[in-house]
Each structure stands twice: as structure tokens, then as C-alpha cells.
């Protein structure tokens, strides 16, 4: 799809001067990508506002359900949350706020949505980021090994294990991990905390505190890696398999290169391209992917916040998280396109 937006006149530029046109093309390429991204973001804002208001449910009803409130109180609350204004008015207020970087106040927490999201973003990035990096490395490594010796016992085992973990429900796996490694089973003592991001009485000093957080990170991270690494492994495996019969590999071998070198220097770099695209697309989804793990291990991140917001429905909070999540996906897509261009000379030349 990236090729479609690249200006066609590039084709007419002189061959042999590869560098210059590529640079000029890059600026144009970037500009078109950014314009696309901005349009998407605008649509997200629009969609976020109107879509969530079409959901059934009245936040005021939920806030007052089961509580001893008078009818006057309900009306007052509706007025205060700005829900009694006409829809177009609410939308203009919302847009006005957004332009000033104000996402509005959460119905439930009564605090600015931006503050709440920022507060929760750190833990989520720590958990989901660490887990994703580990899953990518593990997945790619296993994928390369499997493909190179496809059909072998290693390949069958690795693929089997990966696919099994991939299909296991995250929540269930998380609870098993929690029971085995946090509480302990039989002779195995509980090695890790059952939840949270740090001890309530953290040890003094920076390093012990970092280690304390790391100690809490192990189980959620392990669970998340176990569930997601399969996708990287499978893509890497299949794209490397496609390269396996290529002539250039035969040439490399004919030069007398060792199998290891043929694989690492020739086959893998070529097979890496689809994986890179996948990685960047997944980076955008990392935050939402952590919801289940955060719930099992009581991780104070963004995932749980979103689930709660949906139940309410806490409209400003939902719009805020929606924009943040969609924004990440959009940014990562642009990055994927750009990185792809650097990795694959064919995209540059096209």
C-alpha cells in the first residue's frame, strides 16, 4: 500500500544517482504518510465521540444505580456532567478542549482524563513493552531455527508449544502461573508476589527499588510473552521457508560459506521484512493486549482503566483512551512504512 502513495515521477529520475532522488522522495513520502495519519486521527476523534454516545446506557443511571439518590440529584448530576446539553454543543466543547490538550474530566474519578491516562501509561508500557521485546526476540529466534531445520523434532516441538500457548486463554494461563510461581505448589515455594507493581513498603535506595519492580514484573511478563511470542515465530518461520529455495542461497553456499553464515547473513535479512511490518503493527496494539494480564496480576496500567470506563460508560475517559490507543496504532503504522523503506531497497526504488 505504501507504494501506491509514492509519486510516480520518481521512476523517471536518472538511474545511477540513487541517493539524491531517494532523499527527495523521502520528504514527499513522509509528508503524504503524515497527512494520512492526521486524517485518520481526526476520524478517530469524530468516531470516538459519536460512537460511544450511541452505546446503550446512561452514565448517570450507572453512577446512581443501587444508591440512595433523589430525582433532583440525578438531574443535577446530568447537568454537571454536561450531558443535558445538546449533542452538537457537547461535541464543540469537546473539540475546543482537545485543541487545548484537554481531554475533559472523567465521570468516575472526577479528575482530568489526561492525568489519569498518563499515570497509568507508564506501568502498561513497562509491562507490555518488556513482554513484547522479549516475545519478538524469542519468536524470531525460534522461527529462524524452526524454518532452517523444518520438519525436525525441534521444529515440531517449538511450533507445537508456541501454538498451544497462543491458543490458551490468557486469563487462565495467568492464574495458573500465579498459583504455581506466586503461591507455590507442593515443594515449590511462592517465589513472586501475587500482584501489583511494587511492594507497599519499598526497600530504600534506587537499585533495590528497581529490582523490587522487576520482581513484580516477572510473572505478568512471563504470561504475556508466553501468549504472544507464537505470532512472531510463525511469521518468521514461514517467510524464511519462502527464501530457503532461493538461488542466492545456493550461490552463497557455492562460495563456501558455512551454513550458519548463509543463514544469518543472507537468508534471515531477506526474510525479516514481513516480520518487521508485523512487529510495528503489533507495537501499536501492545497497550490493549495487556488488558487480561493486567487484570490477573493487578497491574496498575491502562488496560483495567479501559474496561472500567466501558462499564460506566465514562465517556470522557473512553474517548481519551480511544484516542491514545488509536493514535499509537497510527503512529506505529507510519513508522512501519518508514522503517520498511530503509530496510528494503526495493521500496525506495519503486
Amino acid at each position: 500500500m505504501s507504494d501506491l502513495l509514492t509519486p510516480g515521477n520518481q521512476l523517471t529520475e536518472e538511474a545511477g544517482e540513487e541517493q539524491r532522488p531517494a532523499r527527495g522522495g523521502l520528504a514527499r513520502y513522509l509528508a503524504s504518510k503524515l497527512a494520512g495519519a492526521l486524517t485518520s486521527l481526526l476520524l478517530v476523534v469524530l468516531l470516538g465521540f459519536f460512537l460511544f454516545r450511541m452505546l446503550p446506557g446512561d452514565p448517570v443511571q450507572t453512577m446512581t444505580a443501587g444508591r440512595e439518590v433523589t430525582a433532583e440529584q440525578i438531574a443535577e448530576l446530568r447537568e454537571r456532567l454536561g450531558l443535558s446539553d445538546p449533542l452538537w454543543r457537547q461535541f464543540l466543547d469537546y473539540l475546543g478542549g482537545l485543541l487545548q490538550g484537554d481531554f475533559g474530566d472523567s465521570f468516575r474519578y472526577g479528575r482530568p482524563v489526561g492525568d489519569i491516562i498518563l499515570e497509568r501509561l507508564g506501568p502498561t508500557i513497562l509491562l507490555a513493552g518488556t513482554a513484547t521485546v522479549l516475545a519478538i526476540l524469542l519468536g524470531l529466534w525460534l522461527g529462524v531455527r524452526s524454518a532452517w531445520r523444518h520438519g525436525s523434532r525441534f521444529d515440531r516441538t517449538a511450533t507445537g508449544v508456541a501454538l498451544t500457548l497462543w491458543s490458551v486463554p490468557t486469563f487462565w494461563l495467568g492464574l495458573i502461573v500465579l498459583m504455581v510461581f506466586a503461591v507455590g505448589v507442593g515443594p515449590l515455594p511462592g517465589l513472586f508476589p501475587t500482584g501489583g507493581i511494587r511492594s507497599i513498603d519499598p526497600p530504600p535506595g534506587l537499585l533495590p527499588q528497581v529490582l523490587d519492580v522487576a520482581h513484580h514484573l516477572v510473572l505478568p511478563c512471563l504470561t504475556m510473552v508466553a501468549v504472544i511470542f507464537a505470532q512472531y515465530q510463525m511469521v518468521m518461520r514461514s517467510s524464511l521457508l519462502e527464501e530457503m529455495g532461493s538461488d542466492y542461497l545456493t550461490t552463497a553456499r557455492a562460495k563456501g560459506l558455512r551454513e550458519d553464515l548463509v543463514r544469518r547473513r543472507h537468508a534471515v535479512p531477506n526474510a525479516l521484512l514481513p516480520s518487521v511490518t508485523l512487529i510495528f503493527l503489533h507495537l501499536g496494539l501492545v497497550v490493549s493486549g495487556a488488558i487480561m494480564v493486567e487484570t490477573v496480576f493487578s497491574w496498575p496500567g491502562l488496560g483495567y482503566l479501559m474496561v472500567n470506563a466501558l462499564e460506566y460508560p465514562d465517556l470522557p475517559l473512553m474517548q481519551g483512551t480511544f484516542i491514545v490507543l488509536a493514535g499509537t496504532v497510527i503512529v506505529m503504522n507510519v513508522l512501519a512504512d518508514v522503517v520498511y523503506r530503509f530496510l528494503d531497497p526495493r521500496v525506495r526504488a519503486a
Binding site: F192, S199, P204, P208, V210, L211, D212, A214, H215, V218
Partner: peptide, 15 residues
């Protein structure tokens, strides 16, 4: 890093 953590944890588990 996480694996080392339990080493530093005696204080952490002071809770």
C-alpha cells in the same frame, strides 16, 4: 534483571 530481583528482595518482602 527480573531474575536477579529476588536477590534484592529481602528488604522488599519486609512488608
Amino acid at each position: 534483571a527480573p531474575a536477579v530481583a529476588p536477590l534484592g528482595a529481602p528488604q522488599a518482602d519486609a512488608q
